[in-house]
Amino acid sequence: MSKVHLVRSGLDELLAGLQEGDPVPAERDLAVRFAVARDTVRQALHELLLEGRVQRRGRGTVVAKPKLVQPLSLKSYTEGAEQMGRKPGRILVAWEEVAATADLSAGLDVGLGLPVMHLERVLLADNERIGLESTYLPLPRFARLYDTFDPETSLYAAIRATGVQFASALERIETILPTPREAGLLLTTTAMPMLHLHRRSLDSEGRPIEVVRALYRGDRVAFQTVLVDGA
């Protein structure tokens, strides 16, 4: 077993005896405890950081909150966060009209180059930045949102309030690294793996509702779904 794995095993035992928010001993103290170089401790702590088990706070490291587990369903981010007892929130980054690219034209069934509504928001859980969401909506269908929607609240609730019901969605999740801008908005680094979610939602008549591109911090969010045997 490598020295990093030995340190990881020791840290696993150490973390099992700590509570959320408790400080993790300093690198130099851990190096002495496990009789290894500080670089070895730093590598083990970095692995725990990427897994979301610890997080940086100031110059130190503390035990992290459990990851926010989001359901893979047509529920909104708000509903998923509240189910875990977390307080959802949002910071508005942009709310604008943009010209439909080829992908947006196909995804939203609008003419190429025609304006679509773009809403970009940082997603919060208990005031912690965990995601960055860009939603594109067909403008003629949802222009009224400019007068009725508070961008710090649930977009799905606002859409449903217009009488539109979500019926189905195609969703794809991949792992990517953020751009410097995205990392800055999420208060992390470009080395932090992100869960990249792409979704296209339809109503009961098969009409497009939205195209969404969202990034979630891999150390703070996980996704789950229920699988049922369809045989």
Score class of each variant (00 low, 15 high):
E152P: 10
T153P: 04
T153S: 08
S154M: 11
S154W: 11
Y156D: 15
Y156A: 11
A157H: 15
A158S: 03
A158N: 03
I159R: 00
T162L: 06
T162V: 06
V164F: 06
V164I: 10
V164K: 00
A167V: 05
A167K: 10
A167C: 05
S168A: 14
S168H: 12
A169K: 02
L170W: 11
L170P: 08
L170C: 11
E171D: 13
E171T: 15
R172W: 13
R172P: 07
I173R: 02
T175R: 12
T175C: 07
I176Q: 12
P178M: 01
T179D: 04
T179P: 04
R181A: 14
E182K: 00
E182S: 08
A183P: 03
L185R: 08
L185W: 08
L186H: 01
L186D: 00
T188P: 02
T190L: 06
T190Q: 09
M192V: 07
P193E: 01
P193F: 01
L195V: 09
H196N: 13
H198N: 14
R199L: 05
R199W: 00
R200T: 14
R200Y: 11
R200K: 12
S201A: 15
S201F: 08
S201C: 08
L202M: 13
D203V: 03
S204I: 10
S204K: 09
E205V: 09
E205C: 10
G206P: 04
